[in-house]
Deep mutational scan, measured.
Amino acid sequence: MSIQHFRVALIPFFAAFCLPVFAHPETLVKVKDAEDQLGARVGYIELDLNSGKILESFRPEERFPMMSTFKVLLCGAVLSRVDAGQEQLGRRIHYSQNDLVEYSPVTEKHLTDGMTVRELCSAAITMSDNTAANLLLTTIGGPKELTAFLHNMGDHVTRLDRWEPELNEAIPNDERDTTMPAAMATTLRKLLTGELLTLASRQQLIDWMEADKVAGPLLRSALPAGWFIADKSGAGERGSRGIIAALGPDGKPSRIVVIYTTGSQATMDERNRQIAEIGASLIKHW
Rank of each mutant, 00 (worst) to 15 (best):
W208C: 03
T131K: 02
M127T: 12
F13N: 03
Y103F: 09
G263V: 04
F58N: 15
I278Q: 00
G114K: 04
R273V: 10
N130F: 00
L282V: 12
A245S: 10
I275P: 00
P105R: 05
E164K: 01
L111T: 12
A235I: 04
V21Y: 05
M1W: 01
V101I: 10
K30E: 07
L150R: 00
D99R: 07
E270A: 12
I54K: 07
I11E: 03
A23D: 05
T131H: 04
K144V: 12
V257S: 03
T179W: 00
L197P: 03
T27L: 08
F149A: 08
P20Y: 03
G236W: 01
G52I: 03
D207W: 12
A230F: 02
T186P: 08
P224W: 03
E166T: 11
R159W: 06
T116S: 10
N272H: 04
I54A: 13
P65R: 02
E145T: 11
R7V: 09
R59H: 08
A182V: 15
L111Y: 09
A15G: 15
R59E: 03
D212C: 04
T27W: 02
R238Y: 13
E145C: 13
G90C: 09
L197K: 06
A222F: 08
S80E: 12
I243Y: 06
K190F: 08
W227Y: 07
A245N: 01
P25T: 11
T262H: 14
G43K: 00
K213C: 12
R159Y: 06
M66N: 02
L146A: 06
M180T: 14
A133E: 00
Y95M: 07
K284I: 11
T131P: 03
F228N: 06
T193M: 14
W208Q: 03
D161K: 03
T126D: 07
F70T: 05
E56P: 00
G216I: 07
A230E: 01
D250P: 09
D269K: 12
E56Q: 11
Y103H: 08
T198Y: 07
P65H: 04
L150W: 06
A215G: 09
V82R: 07
R238F: 14
G251E: 11
M67E: 04
N173A: 14
P60H: 12
A123V: 07
A148Q: 14
F58Y: 15
V78C: 05
S254W: 09
I256N: 01
P249S: 08
E26R: 08
H151A: 14
T179P: 00
E166A: 13
H24W: 09
K284H: 09
E87T: 08
S240L: 02
A225G: 13
M127A: 08
W208S: 03
V257R: 00
D250T: 11
E270H: 10
R92S: 10
D212M: 03
G43M: 00
S68G: 00
A148W: 09
A246N: 05
A170N: 09
L47M: 12
A133C: 05
T126R: 07
Y44H: 03
N168I: 05
A16C: 13
T69N: 02
R176L: 08
L135M: 10
T179G: 01
V31R: 01
A266F: 08
H151K: 14
L10H: 06
G226W: 06
L218K: 02
T261A: 09
V29I: 15
L100V: 10
I171C: 14
D155V: 01
M67I: 07
P143V: 07
L282D: 01
S57W: 11
D113G: 11
S240G: 12
S80N: 12
T116E: 10
K213F: 10
G90M: 13
K213W: 06
V117W: 01
T112P: 12
L191W: 05
K252Q: 14
P165L: 08
G76M: 05
A124R: 00
A84E: 12
T158N: 01
P224G: 07
V8S: 15
D36F: 15
A16M: 15
F13L: 12
K32P: 01
V42G: 01
E35W: 01
P165I: 08
F58C: 05
M115D: 01
T179F: 00
M1F: 02
A132P: 00
S240D: 05
A235S: 08
R159T: 10
D113M: 10
T187A: 09
I256D: 00
V101S: 10
Q4A: 12
A225T: 15
V258N: 02
G226V: 04
P181Y: 00
G216W: 08
H94P: 09
A215C: 04
P143L: 04
A215S: 09
V101P: 02
A170Q: 07
M67S: 09
L28S: 08
L188C: 09
H24D: 13
A200H: 15
N272W: 01
E46G: 05
P224F: 03
S201L: 06
T138C: 13
M66P: 01
D161P: 01
M153G: 08
A211M: 10
A148K: 14
R255C: 03
R176C: 09
G154R: 07
I171W: 14
A225E: 14
G141H: 07
T147S: 10
F70N: 05
I229Q: 02
G263T: 05
R41I: 09
R189K: 14
A148V: 13
R255I: 06
L137G: 04
G142E: 05
C121M: 08
K109E: 14
V214L: 07
L247P: 00
T186H: 13
K213T: 08
T147K: 08
A200V: 10
P253R: 08
N152V: 10
H151C: 10
L167G: 05
L160R: 01
G43Y: 00
A211D: 15
V42A: 06
V106W: 07
G248W: 02
N50G: 14
F13R: 02
D177C: 03
R159V: 07
E166G: 11
F228E: 04
E119G: 10
L205C: 03
E145S: 12
A235K: 02
D174I: 03
N130E: 01
F70D: 01
T138L: 12
D212V: 04
P165E: 06
I93K: 04
A40T: 08
V42K: 00
V117P: 04
N134Y: 03
A215N: 05
G194E: 14
A148E: 15
I206K: 12
H94C: 09
V214K: 08
G251Y: 09
S233K: 01
E102G: 09
E270P: 03
V101N: 07
V72S: 06
S264C: 10
M127D: 07
V8R: 13
A182T: 13
R81T: 07
P217M: 14
E87N: 05
T267K: 12
A84P: 03
P253F: 09
K252V: 14
G76H: 02
D129E: 01
I278W: 02
H24P: 06
T126S: 12
P181M: 02
I278S: 00
E108G: 12
V257K: 00
N134F: 03
G236D: 04
V78M: 09
F70G: 07
R202H: 08
G248P: 00
R59Y: 04
H5Y: 12
T261G: 03
L191Q: 04
G234V: 00
D33C: 14
D174P: 02
G263S: 07
E237F: 09
T126N: 06
S122L: 15
W286D: 02
G76N: 01
A266V: 13
Y95T: 03
D207I: 10
S233E: 01
R202L: 05
P165D: 06
G239H: 04
I125T: 06
R159H: 12
L120C: 06
Q265D: 12
F22V: 06
Q274E: 14
G114S: 05
F17P: 05
V8N: 15
G279W: 03
E61L: 13
T69K: 01
A40Y: 03
S233N: 01
Q88N: 13
D161T: 06
H151F: 09
V258Y: 01
A132G: 05
F14M: 11
H156P: 10
M66C: 07
L47H: 03
D231M: 04
A182C: 13
S281P: 03
L223I: 12
I229M: 08
G263D: 06
C18Y: 06
V72P: 10
S281D: 08
N152K: 13
T27E: 03
